[in-house]
Amino acid sequence: MTADRQAERDAIQAAARRLLAGTPTQSTGALTVLQLAAEAGVKRWVLTHKHPDLRQAFEDQRRAADGVPAAYQHLENKIADLEAANRRLRADNTELTERVDTYAQVIRELVTELDRQPRNVAALPDNVTRLPNPR
């Protein structure tokens, strides 16, 4: 094996380690063959045609990591928790909105019923206080 070929292999292996660890230095950090080539500083065809074993090893490691660099895997759990909390909050919000709408309808019906009653304050039950009519 020539020195250039060995240098390419070393660069690709080091780049794969950096990408899988979530510490890229020359790429976006995405776990793709294209970003592996960019991280290693080689052309994509060098990786896919001259070193297919390294490409395959990288893809196997990526699959094992579910496509998420190790440095970011703890965030996957946090994202799942936040999404669950978001779903709960949205459901609570929907329930509360429906409840407020129901209360508003009841208040409108009570106001209508009170408007039908005579204005005689003495005719109202003891626990009802008529508010001034803003109309």
Results as ranks from 00 to 15, higher is better:
residue 19 L to M: 10
residue 124 L to V: 08
residue 44 R to C: 03
residue 12 I to T: 00
residue 124 L to A: 05
residue 107 I to R: 03
residue 127 N to C: 13
residue 27 S to H: 08
residue 119 R to D: 11
residue 100 V to D: 04
residue 26 Q to A: 15
residue 112 T to L: 11
residue 51 H to Y: 09
residue 94 T to K: 07
residue 121 V to T: 10
residue 99 R to T: 14
residue 76 E to D: 07
residue 123 A to V: 12
residue 132 P to F: 14
residue 122 A to Q: 15
residue 90 R to W: 04
residue 93 N to W: 02
residue 60 D to W: 11
residue 5 R to L: 05
residue 32 T to K: 02
residue 74 H to T: 09
residue 36 L to H: 04
residue 16 A to S: 13
residue 22 G to D: 07
residue 33 V to Y: 00
residue 89 L to P: 07
residue 129 T to G: 09
residue 50 K to N: 13
residue 97 T to A: 14
residue 19 L to E: 10
residue 12 I to W: 00
residue 76 E to A: 10
residue 112 T to D: 15
residue 55 R to L: 07
residue 41 G to L: 03
residue 33 V to S: 09
residue 13 Q to R: 12
residue 89 L to F: 13
residue 56 Q to W: 11
residue 53 D to T: 04
residue 50 K to I: 04
residue 133 N to S: 12
residue 9 R to E: 10
residue 9 R to F: 05
residue 83 E to N: 07
residue 116 R to Y: 06
residue 16 A to G: 10
residue 66 D to S: 12
residue 13 Q to C: 07
residue 17 R to F: 09
residue 49 H to V: 12
residue 106 V to T: 12
residue 111 V to M: 06
residue 39 E to T: 01
residue 35 Q to G: 05
residue 40 A to D: 03
residue 103 Y to L: 15
residue 39 E to G: 04
residue 11 A to W: 01
residue 108 R to T: 06
residue 105 Q to E: 10
residue 67 G to P: 01
residue 130 R to M: 02
residue 80 A to C: 11
residue 129 T to F: 04
residue 110 L to I: 08
residue 8 E to T: 07
residue 14 A to L: 12
residue 9 R to C: 09
residue 66 D to R: 11
residue 91 A to K: 06
residue 55 R to E: 15
residue 17 R to K: 11
residue 108 R to Q: 06
residue 43 K to P: 06
residue 125 P to D: 09
residue 123 A to I: 11
residue 16 A to M: 11
residue 49 H to Q: 15
residue 58 F to W: 00
residue 3 A to D: 05
residue 113 E to V: 10
residue 78 K to I: 13
residue 28 T to E: 13
residue 67 G to L: 01
residue 76 E to V: 13
residue 13 Q to K: 07
residue 121 V to P: 04
residue 11 A to D: 01
residue 88 R to E: 15
residue 85 A to C: 05
residue 33 V to M: 02
residue 119 R to M: 06
residue 74 H to L: 11
residue 13 Q to I: 02
residue 23 T to V: 15
residue 71 A to D: 02
residue 54 L to C: 03
residue 52 P to E: 01
residue 116 R to M: 09
residue 75 L to K: 02
residue 24 P to L: 03
residue 84 A to F: 10
residue 21 A to K: 07
residue 6 Q to N: 09
residue 8 E to Y: 07
residue 73 Q to T: 10
residue 20 L to P: 10
residue 61 Q to S: 14
residue 42 V to Y: 04
residue 27 S to D: 06
residue 73 Q to F: 04
residue 67 G to R: 01
residue 17 R to N: 09
residue 79 I to G: 03
residue 80 A to P: 04
residue 67 G to Q: 00
residue 101 D to P: 01
residue 36 L to I: 06
residue 93 N to F: 03
residue 84 A to D: 13
residue 4 D to M: 07
residue 105 Q to L: 08
residue 90 R to V: 08
residue 69 P to I: 11
residue 132 P to D: 13
residue 12 I to G: 00
residue 133 N to E: 14
